[in-house]
Design a protein around this nucleic acid. Structure first.
Lengths: 213, 213
DNA sequence: GTCTATAAAAGGATAGAC
DNA sequence: GTCTATCCTTTTATAGAC
């Protein structure tokens, strides 16, 4: 049988690993690092707890792998954006819309990053290549801002880092703080009409800031 | 001795309660709800673990009390703002600066709210008066926006809720995501020069948005 | 590579004296 | 109201067979 071949075993191993990662991601997303239970994760996989330790060494090792996978996901998505040959304002708007949509559609990524910040970012600090994760999007943003400023469209001179923080803050917060905001103000930020209203607002806010010093 | 009087005992009880709350707040802030240890909290107080259960019933009860205290803190601070008789733009700027400063100076509050959102806001959902916490600041903001729009200064028509989300997002995120942002971009968002640059940016961004539709 | 059973320790909660 | 000592469940992690 295929299972007894070298390739078959490797394929199974990869599938098992991915199965564990997927289940673990949901668990860490929902309960945080300390709140997540290895037993609960094991029960929801096709395999057993022993395998989690076999592949990832520890609960923390598993968490680190989940976090790395999540960052790889957004990096891959960002790589599909091609903004170089577009007009500066249109390119910027499209980038902001992309960031908004990605956070909106990947609440689990947002929650994982929130969890990691509760733990002082100590696990991502050990990740290799982490610096390069958002380096591309920052470079792209810097290009857009430079072209826009040269063309006289963006009259305000800014650091790409600052604008990125601004975009990120506006897109991240409405997802990460969905519950507290919803409770305090009695509204659902994920409702379609509010969502699209805020999408427009975020884009317009950044553009207004750059155009009108 | 004073300790044996009714008043003395009550004063001690209040002090003990507050001591526990203060220590617990630091612990929950640093490790989250699940990550915090009741033993660790007890060790850092003047009193013992037994007293924590005596006063707060459970770890979750203690956490809820800490959360409530934190929200009471920001409500109290916001109440000191008197913005009614100022010009709309000046009033708005002062409100944003206040929000920025409060988040900047109370990172523990920010982290607690982040923790609470990891837990789907289930503890604040049970808090009474939570709806009224930010009702005042929203009402004040609504007044400023209305006056500004009437005076033709804020040409964009907006919901106070949306503007509040915007301000909150910009002020909250740079504190809550300090670690991940710092690691990915190799910078310290709490450094004084970056801090004051961002303070100006946040204020200008909101004002630009409202003035230039 | 995968399973069952279990060790080892941590951590939430309480009993009962004073 | 406060202290010491302790229970008992939960949870991380591993041993050892196949």
């Amino acid at each position: 049988m295929a299972r007894t071949t070298e390739g078959g075993r490797k394929a199974d191993a990869a599938r098992t690993r991915l199965d564990i990662l997927t289940v673990a991601r949901a668990e860490f997303t929902e309960h945080g690092l300390s709140g997540a239970r290895v037993d609960a994760i094991a029960e929801k996989t096709r395999t057993t707890k022993r395998m989690i330790y076999y592949y990832f060494g520890s609960k923390e090792g598993l968490y680190a792998a989940v976090l790395e996978q999540a960052y790889a996901g957004i990096r891959t998505a960002e790589a599909t954006l091609r903004l170089d040959d577009e007009e500066p304002e249109a390119a910027l708007r499209r980038m902001i819309e992309f960031t908004f949509d990605y956070h909106d559609e990947h609440a689990d990524f947002v929650r994982l990053v929130a969890v990691e910040n509760i733990h002082q970012g100590q696990y991502m600090a050990k990740m290799e290549n982490i610096q390069s994760v958002n380096a591309d999007i920052l470079k792209a943003l810097d290009g857009i801002l430079g072209r826009g400023h040269a063309a006289g469209i963006f009259r305000r001179r800014t650091e790409a880092l600052d604008v990125h923080l601004m975009i990120s803050g506006l897109c991240f917060h409405r997802v990460s703080n969905r519950y507290s905001f919803g409770t305090v103000f009695g509204c659902d930020l994920s409702a379609p009409d509010i969502r699209s209203r805020h999408r427009r607002m975020v884009v317009d806010a950044v553009v207004s800031y750059l155009k009108h010093p």
